[in-house]
Design a protein around this nucleic acid. Sequence first.
RNA 1: GUGGAUGUAGCUUAGUUGGCCUAAAGCGCCAGUUUGUGGCACUGGAGAUCGUGGGUUCGAAUCCCAUCUUCCACCCCA
Length: 435
Amino acid sequence: MAEINKAPRGTCDVLPQDSAKWQYVEDKMIETAKIFGFSEIRVPVFEHTEVFTKSVGDTTDVVQKEMYTFLDKGDRSITLRPELTAGVVRSVIEHGLLSGPMPLKVCYIGGCYRYEKPQAGRLREFHQFGVECFGAKSPAADAEVILLADHLLKNLGLKSYSLHINSIGCPECRKNYHAALKEYFRSQSDRLCGTCLDRLERNPMRILDCKSPVCSEIAAGAPVVLDYLCDECREHFEGVKSHLTAAGIDFSVDPHIVRGLDYYTKTVFEFVSTSLGAQSTVCGGGRYDGLIEQMHGAPTPALGFGMGIERLLMIMEAENAAMPESKKPDIYLAPMGEAAALKCTALCKALRDEGFIALTDITGRGLKAQMKYADKIGARFTMVLGDDELTANKGKIKCMESGEQTEISLDEIREKLYELAYYDGITADIDSLIK
RNA sequence: GUGGAUGUAGCUUAGUUGGCCUAAAGCGCCAGUUUGUGGCACUGGAGAUCGUGGGUUCGAAUCCCAUCUUCCACCCCA
């Protein structure tokens, strides 16, 4: 039974009192990406289902049991994007962006949809910031993308995070590794948990990730991917580490990082925070050199990451990271009577044209109630306009913090606010005035 | 999908051996306390089918069943 007054499970509303935080981090994200030469791309919330099954991988949990898939009225199988990389890759191929200057660097912010059981840091609709870099196979590219994420997290004031990297090699070296893994785990198969037995044939690398005490104990003795890398992959990984070190970034090599999406090759990495619950990864990504070709584009090396915005905000909350407060109204004009109301409308328009946040009464309530309201919304200044003011064309502008009142001509409100703006952090851009 | 906890006004809670509960308080909201000024105080008001649906009972917010939500963990991932 659908509830008309309840949001669907696993979704949440960003309420007016919180939207400033979202705007703040989203601005930082785009701004940081720009510093690294990434420009925003916007792609649809839904795609043809194949876009995801062919890229994310049809044996993955994401595709197998978490996608919102439906038939549209034209009998097309449509899926709400569970992540953004696939759609972005589709888009850059479709529009020939890979024939432009290389490397191509894009970033995005958007909602993702996964039918999961909600818990701390896990929602059915969640939002990701991410970047994708196409056409760069050098380890410097891997480092740059990782540096971007680190730069952003630092700039947002995060402290409790750490970077873990690994290389899962190219399809070539992974073949050998899978064989070695299977052999190892088969020898212990009687002790593995049920899900891991499943994984043994399908994707033995996932066993390394299992959190059951027995499995992780077994996994601890398993062959390590890094020992099975081909020369090229090993060299590449060494290069990534060198670049990170050169940039002075702390990281640890964690051979147990296995990403859950099929398209990854070579470098994979995660930014993990201790300020989160069980869902401790705030940012995850890696290289996917084979994906573009797999999606019928010209073979192009590529990599990127996704960062969970809700998780990021959770960390910032937990760590008391600095967040900007939403801007308060500069002035509230309190009319008394119909004639005054007209004047207030006119004055507000003039002030708003200058960029001030100017408010007036739209409920028809009494003066006292208006003053209370002005106080509650945090207006810096108020001015009462009644018949007296209209005839004299003068009024008292009141500073709500000090209670001080100054008599001014009604024609001077704009100038008065500009004057006050110099030392009171008022909203309108005072630079234009200085010029 | 599996497991554990939870659910009373917008928020935080009181109320549970079933009957003075036709549900209470604080905060918040609205309105007043000499149509001319907010923060304090006082007064009043609106606001809850006690998550929902069944059942037991003379009687259920209180007991039983189901269901949903939220939270937490597994799984998986951001």
